[in-house]
Amino acid sequence: MPLQLDFMSILVQWPLLLRGAAWTIALTAIATLLGGMLGIVCAWARAGGPRALRWLVGGYVEIIRNTPFIVQLFFIFFGLPELGIRLSPMTASILAMTVNLGAYATEILRAGIEATPRGQIEAAESLALTKAQVFTRVVLPPALKKVWPALVSQIVIVMLGSAVCGQISTEELSYATNLIQSRNFRAFETYIVGTLSYLGLAILVRNLLYWAGPRFLFGR
């Protein structure tokens, strides 16, 4: 039997795919904002905080970076209810993605922060800027600029990783793909379309962030 592929039966379901893609983008956007902020706070704590805090952040980063995202997600979604913390699939997904991205962002940002010349900080302090001002005005922008490509790559990786969130019935792109293939029984073609949609999203998000970074975050 020759291989016969039928893509029409998937493409007629485009509203489902579109909705899934929109949720994937939304999850990524929220996780990027929250995870980015978490990363900045942790990077700051790790670079100049008290010793106990530095250890704590170091532990958090290593635990997250050395365990699979799917286990982190399952721990949050299936494990936390034992403590009485019952999260919806969407909230659990956002939390898992935020915690995950936060750890990687901490490491990436720390590299950028440590590269700040000592003299710049001293110069800022001599202008009577407060510690917080020195960090947000003098240290952070050039650090962000330096590590932006690495950070963007990591955000894309987190977005691709979010395909796993469909497993706890978060209605994102991989969930939509699953749903469509359970309706038309054309699994192979459906997953081709779903996979290529992710590729499109990855390219889109990467270009968008490369465009947005210099404009809104750190200037050219």
């Binding site: 997953y191 992710y198 990855a202």
Partner: peptide, 11 residues
């Protein structure tokens, strides 16, 4: 590198 490993597995 541009697609999720999960989707590659399904595919």
């Amino acid at each position: 590198q541009g697609t999720p490993l999960l989707m590659q597995l399904f595919l």
